[in-house]
Write a protein that binds this DNA or RNA. Sequence first.
RNA 1: GGGCGGUUAGCUCAGCUGGUAAGAGCGCCUCCCUUACAAGGAGGAGGUCGUUGGUUCGAGUCCAAUACCGCCCACCA
Length: 899
Amino acid sequence: MLPKTYDFESTERRIYQMWEENGYFKPFNDPNEEDFDPEIENYVISIPPPNVTGKLHLGHVLFVSMEDLMIRYHRMKGYSTLWVPGTDHAGIATQLQVEKQLQKEGTSRREIGRDAFLKRMWQWKDDHSGLIKEQIRRLGASCDWDRERFTMDEGLSNAVREAFVHLYEKGLIYRGPRLINWSPALQTAVSDLEVEHEEEKGKLYYFKYRIAGSEDDYIPVATTRPETILGDAAVAVHPDDERFQKFIGQTALVPILNREIPVIADEYVDLEFGTGALKITPGHDPNDYEIGMRHGLEIYSMLDKAGKVTAVGGPYQGQDRFEARENLWEDMRQEGLVLKEEPYVHQVPRAQRGGEIIEPMVSTQWFVEIQPLAEKALAAVKNGEIEIVPERFEKVYYNWMENIHDWCISRQLWWGHRIPVWYCDECGERTVKRQDPTVCEHCGSETIHQDPDVLDTWFSSGLWPFSTLGWPEETPDYKYFYPTTMMETGYDILFFWVARMIMMGLELTGKKPFSTVYLHGLVMDEKGQKMSKTKGNAIDPIEVMDEMGTDALRFTMLVGSTPGNNTNLSLKKVEANRNFANKVWNAGRFVLSAIQDTPSSPQSPPEWTLADSWIWARLQDLIREVERLFQNHQYGVAGRQIYDFFWGDYADWYLEIAKEQLDQGEDRAYYTIETLVRVLDMCLRLLHPFTPYVTEELWQHLKDAVMHSPLQERLGAWEDALIIAPWPETRPEEGWEAETMEHFNLIQEIVRTIRNVRAEKNVQDGQLIPATFASAEYSPILENQKTVLAALAQLDKEKISIYTNLAEKPEGHVALVAGPVEIYLPLADLVDPEEEYKRLLGELKEAEGHIDRLEELLAGPFSEKAPQEIVGKERDKLEDYREKARTIQEQIEMLKGSS
RNA sequence: GGGCGGUUAGCUCAGCUGGUAAGAGCGCCUCCCUUACAAGGAGGAGGUCGUUGGUUCGAGUCCAAUACCGCCCACCA
């Protein structure tokens, strides 16, 4: 006998191992095998590679669960599915970990040197990379581990090399001095995307820009970063500004330094803002850089890579940027150049990693000329070749692509793909090769040295969907599985990653890298706040799984998420879903025990009861719904519907009725068990992509039981495992279904009505009571469902009377109406007639309210304009209420008469 | 400055293609440890679906304004 509570601890590891050992995670149609059939449709996802030394967080849980759901669904649908797992070297993030370690040891990467440092990096990677993979397995991820990749393994490094050289040869990669984002702490350039703009409180500093050759003339200027005055190359005013027009063309003097700079006119200057005049620092501000370019201004680099003032800053040389700000401002105050300071809120650029203030500065770096790539990438989405779900992100994507800037790809780090460019010490020319060169290809000199920088991590991630399949080699995997099908990832990396994959894929492979982009939201805490360790609201998924099982966590994430929207996770929800897993388990236990007692093969053909037909019809309806929702990527809604069906229909109603049917003769029992099994089987299949463990475990037991019972004859042979069992097929609704639903709904309504009054009147639970029913139309059904009614409403089966017409209402009874059916329960001794009268009056009032409303509705334009189907429905409803009201009237009359 | 999302029961959220007096989980109240499940069962209370207009026979669902919360993008010193 199975344990009373689902024991996920003893199940999960065993089941995962079983799946993996049997090769179920591998595509069944493998291009590397003999029996490969290129015609079979495939379904491919490349995993968004987590940081190789990372630790599982809820973001991982969400995407792994989601992708596993997609993969399992398609595997069951018969696609040759491949989910490629892997990890990312995550340049800066990982390097910082090791640097931190070195710091603890009292040394640094520069001290130990590049080779030794890289050794340490690989060591670190080897020590830590197992964890995240193990945790992903624990989530039940059915990815093909034999095809696992790492962004810095040999194959992928080749792909990076090929990509770089290809783009370089095409002239789309160039090197040169540009204004870039520099992180003084990280000591590297970062791309625009890696800079976050935070609104912060600062000051707006007003001061005088003195005009050369004059005692009193000055232009008032405001700045948020006074230290950059040291790098000023001009003062700009608007050409139409009457206040300053006379100064245009004159010379201004940089405070303290007294360097002479021109006063220029530029349309960019906003007359209204600040003082209406602008200091121009081309070396340290993106706008000023542009203006400087337009006017051919000198670029003064007044900060070095450590963020200290250079020789340009004269007396301030060597001072830290913030120190220099204070000192310079103080000196200017002494000189009488200061006008005022105002508190000011402005955007401060900070490094995504580390949070340090980024300095824009001019530096020689490698760039990708992005325009030509972006055009193709834009078109691919616009023409529908690539679909983004939810659709609204397409607009976001367009906006970004249309305003894109060249991509700075060189990083002054050591952990990453080294830029494949060699400089000749003799002739100074560059050699760019797919294979490491030994000599300069221009002069043949052997004294060449490789560029010390590495590539942005996202450069290699951008190749992920094809590099993992073997590109640039034309491997069987690449030929069959590329382009991939689905790119499932968070909307937060739409630009970082998705956009780059599309650009790189189209350029390098000539094909789109995937057909659909599905973007999920971020995982927040239950209040919608970002989770963080410092806030103390972070939930550790491992702990949750330890406590409540993987299925519970998965189901919570999947069902709680709507495409593109954030998911707020609370432990309460996980708990509720753990209960659901347990519900499934226990329903399964019930069915299993029923199977044990299956009578031998039936003598007669099946005679399905109303409940049998109803649950089957509901199931078919559910399957259609789920299919439709899956096609629309509405996975969460689908999960909820399965949940509702399983708990609300199958467990709460059908199972209870089945208990009765099991006692109604051998054939009836047999067919009941068959229905129990068939529906459970279908539910387990539908649920499997959401909660793989409990469903597989239960299904194995179910299969085992069925195969050893007389049911086998009618249920046939099943697959070896649920993971590869076929997905339930939809079939069109059949004629009998609507009526079955209607009849069963009536039974449900009667049962609820009786239960309600029992609870209200405090009838002892378990006490069977007599009942009288009357209905012209439905009496045959009531007769037929006597047992069901008796069991569910706790009626005395021997004392149920059913009439088509009751001329005399029974006296001393509680009178009820459920739909068109009158119900009389002999509870008079429990009932105060006065109270009863009030209750009936209340019900009458309600019914009359409906009648009024519906009459009004049907009298209006509704009946002409609305579809006949809808109108008919409302008409029927009106009839029902009228009949109900009539019945209640009679009941009231009777009550009056008897008292 | 542009764009996007949210605003539905005490709390956290569903509500997909507009269909007729709004759903779930948790919490709350009453009863029940009945032989699948107390991580359960039965019943119940609780919402003018942010506000204002509009389209429509019909709107939580579509449109327009507006308020608040949040996010993204952007070169206003």
